[in-house]
Design a protein around this nucleic acid. Sequence first.
RNA 1: GGCUCCGUAGUACAAUGGAUAGUAUUUCAGAUUCCGAUUCUGAAGAUGCAGGUUCGAUUCCUGCCGGGGUCACCA
Length: 615
Amino acid sequence: MGLLLTCHVSRLKSYYLRLEMNLDLTLRSEIQKAVTTLFSQSIEQLQIQPTNKEFEGSHTLVCFPIAKISKKGPEETARLIGEYLIAQSGIVSKYNVVKGFLNLVIADRVWVEVFHSIHSQKDFGVLPSDGKEIMVEYSSPNTNKPLHLGHLRNNFLGYSVAEIYKANGYKVHKVQIINDRGIHICKSMAAWKLFGKGETPQSTGIKGDHLVGKYYVEFDKVFKAQIKELIENGVAEKDAERQSPIMQLAVDMLLKWEAKDPETIQLWKTMNGWVYDGFSSTYKRMGVDFEKLYYESETYLLGKEEVLRGVENGAFFKKEDGSVWVDLTGDGLDQKVLLRSDGTSVYMTQDIGTAILRFRDFPKISRQVYTVGNEQEYHFKVLFLILAKLGYSWAKECYHLSYGMVDLPTGKMKSREGTVVDADDLMEEMASEAEKQTRELGKIEDMSDKEIKDLSEMVGLGALKFFLLKVDPKKRMMFDPNESIQLQGHTGPFIQYTHARIKAILRKAESMEISVQETDLKNISTLEPAEREALFLINSYTNKLQEAAKEYSPAVIANYAYDLAKEYNQFYQSIPIFNESDPTKLKFRIAFSQVVADTIKKAMSLLGILVPERM
RNA sequence: GGCUCCGUAGUACAAUGGAUAGUAUUUCAGAUUCCGAUUCUGAAGAUGCAGGUUCGAUUCCUGCCGGGGUCACCA
């Protein structure tokens, strides 16, 4: 009780601290007051939006809805509110009315105050924790082949959403489910046993996941050849698939695995081990991590139990052949199988077990987010309904973060035709392209090879991440590697480059021994338009953070980071920094540049992108 | 076919129901270069079609056209 109380008090404190400098909230309440006083009626929802570039002002109040309660025309209403704010509120210095839009100019004095409070706040942009916990699942690969381009979007998305929630004050648990069992694994095992000649990652120098993937492809090749041969010998197509010797071996291995045959289990462990080693280096390069891994082989039994429990309490039903089904026709869906007639589990079964296990392991989480491609939307709809039928109240808090496919300019990627873009290859290409670009441009002669390597990695991966994250997750997208790595345009490297340039300015300021005191920042009375614009953006950072979490969309942050970098370039172009004769202004601009650089860095880190000090 | 998501300049992406639909790229013209290769300014160019709701629709509703996904005792 005592602990609870102190938590509560400290939360209140930080709330008031924020209120002091929260321009948006203050403005809102001033307008509320104006409306209530002028029209003796209050309005709950105020529409405030950024002012169009062509008009003077930064905040615009949309007055059409207010006109309804004011019983006056929109323009008259806007003018009355404008006049009231000038007279009664300290923060608005000017206004203009265009149609029903009230454009407000915030007093420079207020902007300076806002800037000062951001500048002095060390943890600006991190919302206070309120004890909420959330789980984010992402990646979740099969262990029979290496990761590809689609996995990159998945991993970057999941990681970024997790970081965004962290910044929103949540405690985040990053997890994944590893689909480590099933017929697909046995296929690689069968092919390796037949043709592997004892090959290992060590003996061949091939990365583990790629080696196993090679045998998965090999299986398919042999399987197809055997089917063709059987059909030519007069076997029906359906029977041919079953009679194929290599398929029989795979099925046999699956049965032996389920029966815990030591030799099969050993092979399974060995080959999965190769894959895990391979994955872990891929994850490291991606820059993603996980708090806990779940393995299908460890959760499917709990899923089975739960399904059987569901049969007992009537949530599910059993057919004559022994298979178990759920009837979702009442929810507008179909019937769905949960256990096969032979009692073995299906994909759904293990997801049921996994979900329940996770809420047992982390009882404080309020929500679980699944980062999985949109081809599984139906699957998750069904899963969440089943969990609700089993009586789990948290089922309605499960969320499928669905994303679209990634296309390449060269055409669609299809795994069957072997034109998948491998994740390791792509990352390597991006990094080496970045290195090539850096070396061509020169200016890095004093860098060591190690520094150049690190920089190339940062830029190459940054290009990749930014491009994949800047698009609305649910949309199918086109990834153009060449465009993504350009230093100009809507790209990660452009933002990284802008950051590096700001840092160069700051280094120069330091070498000139310009030191900025907090008091210097308060002596500024007027701002340049570009400074107001950039301050408006910096000030909206926390709003963007909340929006990104609400929408589960790193794209909000990516586009924000870009806007800020672009805004700074405009600022830099229009305003002198070192040529400024007024030392107070010079210092303000240095501090201002510092804050922009910090904010860019913070926003980019939410995307898992590092920004260099120089490049 | 049922369900579902998507259709925005040549191309790739934006736009809580708000103003003359933004940005990048491409092309053309110009400016700056206090950091750094840059950057900035200007010009050209788009909401699939037809209705409806609304003071106002890219956004919401209906129908059509076009594209993706899904509808397994696969995962």
